[in-house]
Design a protein around this nucleic acid. Structure first.
Length: 590
RNA sequence: CGGGGCGUGGCGCAGCCUGGUCAGCGCGAAUGCUUUGGGAGCAUUAGGCCGGAGGUUCAAAUCCUCUCGCCCCGACCA
């Protein structure tokens, strides 16, 4: 195609300066027939194959034009949902002085995930993984009166987190683009409203994106704070386990899900008795050998806190420890499971025979242990276990907490109903931060009565690239991507089949112009390729509406519409095709 | 960081164990002719320091050592 014709196709721009139409002859979407070798997830494979992204280094990706169009659409949806709720966009520096992180105390907490660097004067900087410190620094300098609140500031920006193991392409990259918003309020009541505003905004955003998502209660993690919800796109390959109550509306991340009412394992107290248990290193072996339920076996696990102090953690044999709950129980101190050699040197016996009986390290136990009458515990001696052990009598538990990981069928903490599980991809997260950062950095306002109070903060994030990836993960088939209309880089794939037929091309370009005049976004495949290749590419790229113009259809003054999602085919009179498609598109966007 | 695997034209791979016509295959790219509603056929062509460094050997993609990068599983995490 000559440049002049190409320019002509690009003439009409949308209000954001993006062309309504593009020709595949020139458009930079490098598609691939074969799956990349280093991708595991379907969405990752498709994003490479459909020319959305290319990898530069581990967890670091380039966003190609097709991807960027989708990202821009998501960003516009986000901006409109936030702007109408009074949030204001700004842009903060990516490079931040390390000193700020020392001030907030997160220098240690964030650890090696923080990418540090030095400038030429040997001063320490980090590349921001998030921006609580920076935004709070601005606020402490500029906001002094309750009259300036509430305030909500947000940005859409590149972050860097030096993930231990980046994977799944853009889903868990090291460099990624995030929308992060921060709210500032005078009191709890107002902060609650700000939180609810953002919660509503997020619900609106992910609904408008056409995503099937769930909102769950979440742990607030390293960002800190008191209360939080996660927005999860439901997909089989999700990394998060989500629990849902079958009876009420309770929904939570598995790591957060509380267990309140247990089926306690009660019974008559027995007597402590040492028995020989050869070759029983694991709970299942031991249960089988002793002919007792796994639930009566008490797992003794040695955990090491950040300051290297050991804790012995007890949990029923049929349960898994929830390390998040454990950390929260110990005031958020990071805990890790001891290595086998550590366990042996601290407790004097190999893992598996560690005993709480007479233990010198503090013991923390799951609530389920509390009323256990005849438990099985280690003896501190290889190949021997105690049976008939009872907490309180045979060993001392310092404190009881809810420490077990919720499992399928557990009782709902709200209504007692049954919990079931689904997998999800976290695309958004809202936190009530409280005064954690405002106190650490000294951001406060004077109230009406003249008193000073730390500002109450909230923070709210959406992963831009991850949301796109999650959308693809949720919506695709064996042939390629199936874009929801709202996020699709273009809306219509216009395919003339016989490009050497001048009159057919003329009519196709005429239709092209009618479509873009009707504000439809069109990718025209006017390459001189065989139909099969064009159809395959169209399926891979996954635009919602495929319009084919051929000699056959043109004989009846028609074109063929195929909807990507349903596969539904409709013959449209070519004269009214744009009108029909516009109505279809507009309906899909509402 | 621990365990496993992989680096060979743009992409996907074979060759390595048993050193020596092993530098090859498919896709892709280019040119020509034919073809044209579901990834066409034929012919021709271009393109590779076999991840890097060192070593063993008459001889290394192949064996040894070190190193860099990537992927998977785990701990960790938005």
């Amino acid at each position: 195609m000559d440049r002049e014709r190409e320019r002509k196709l690009l003439e009409k721009l949308d209000p954001y300066g993006e062309p309504y139409g593009q020709s595949l002859l020139r458009y930079f979407v490098p598609t691939q027939k074969e799956d990349p070798a280093d991708a595991e997830l379907v969405s990752h494979k498709l994003m490479i194959r459909a020319g959305l992204i290319r990898k530069l280094a581990g967890g670091i990706y380039s966003y190609l034009p097709f991807m960027l169009r989708s990202m821009r659409k998501l960003e516009r949806i986000i901006r409109s949902a936030l702007n109408t709720r009074g949030a204001q966009e700004l842009l903060l520096p990516a490079v931040q002085p390390y000193e700020l992180w020392r001030e907030s105390g997160r220098d240690k907490k964030y650890g090696p995930e923080l990418l540090r660097l030095k400038d030429r004067h040997d001063r320490d900087f980090v590349i921001g993984p998030t921006h609580e410190e920076v935004i709070t620094d601005i606020i402490r300098h500029e906001i002094h009166s309750f009259r300036d609140l509430p305030l909500n500031l947000y940005q859409i920006q590149t972050k860097f987190r030096d993930e231990i193991r980046p994977r799944f392409g853009v889903m868990r990259g090291r460099e990624f683009i995030m929308k992060d918003a921060y709210s500032f309020d005078e009191d709890e009541d107002s902060a609650g409203k700000s939180y609810q505003d953002m919660y509503d905004a997020y619900t609106e955003i992910f609904s408008r994106c056409g995503l099937n998502f769930a909102t769950v209660e979440a742990d607030s993690g390293a960002i800190g704070g008191s209360y939080s919800h996660e927005f999860m796109v439901l997909a089989e390959s999700g990394e998060n386990n989500l629990v849902f109550c079958n009876h009420c509306s309770y929904a939570a991340n598995q790591e957060k899900a509380e267990l309140l009412s247990y089926k306690f394992i009660k019974g008559q107290k027995g007597t402590l008795e040492k028995v020989y248990t050869p070759n029983c290193r694991h709970v299942d072996q031991l249960a089988k050998f002793l002919k007792v339920p796994e639930a009566t076996i008490i797992k003794s696990m040695l955990f090491i806190a950040e300051d290297n102090s050991p804790y012995l953690v007890l949990i029923p044999g049929h349960r898994e420890i929830n390390t998040i709950k454990l950390q929260n129980a110990l005031n958020g101190v990071p805990m890790r499971l001891a290595e086998p050699n550590e366990a042996e040197s601290i407790m004097g016996v190999p893992m598996g025979f560690v005993t709480p009986v007479g233990a010198k390290v503090p013991i923390i136990a799951d609530n389920m242990i509390k009323e256990m009458a005849q438990g099985v515990v280690g003896t501190g001696e290889k190949d021997y276990h105690f049976i008939g052990a009872a907490p309180g009598r045979d060993f001392t538990v310092h404190s009881y907490f809810d420490l077990a990981l919720a499992t399928e069928g557990d009782p709902c903490p709200r209504c007692g109903g049954e919990l079931s599980f689904k997998k999800g991809i976290e695309v958004g997260h809202v936190f009530k931060l409280g005064t954690k950062y405002s106190e650490a950095l000294g951001a406060k306002v004077t109230r009406k009565d003249g008193s000073e109070t730390p500002i109450i903060m909230g923070c709210y994030g959406i992963g831009i690239g991850r949301t796109i990836a999650a959308s693809i993960e949720q919506s695709h088939d064996k042939d390629g991507i199936i874009w929801p209309v709202a996020l699709s880089p273009f809306e219509v794939a216009l395919i003339p089949l016989q490009v050497q037929n001048d009159s057919l091309m003329e009519k196709t370009y005429k239709l092209f112009n009618e479509l873009i005049d009707a504000t439809l976004e069109v990718l025209i495949d006017d390459r001189d390729e065989r139909p099969g290749k064009k159809f395959k590419d169209a399926d891979l790229l996954g635009l919602p509406y495929r319009v084919t113009v051929s000699e056959k259809s043109l004989a009846k003054d028609e074109c063929e519409l195929k909807e990507r999602a349903s596969g539904k085919i409709t013959m449209l009179p070519i004269a009214s095709a744009s009108e029909y498609l516009k109505a279809l598109r507009d309906k899909a966007l509402n």
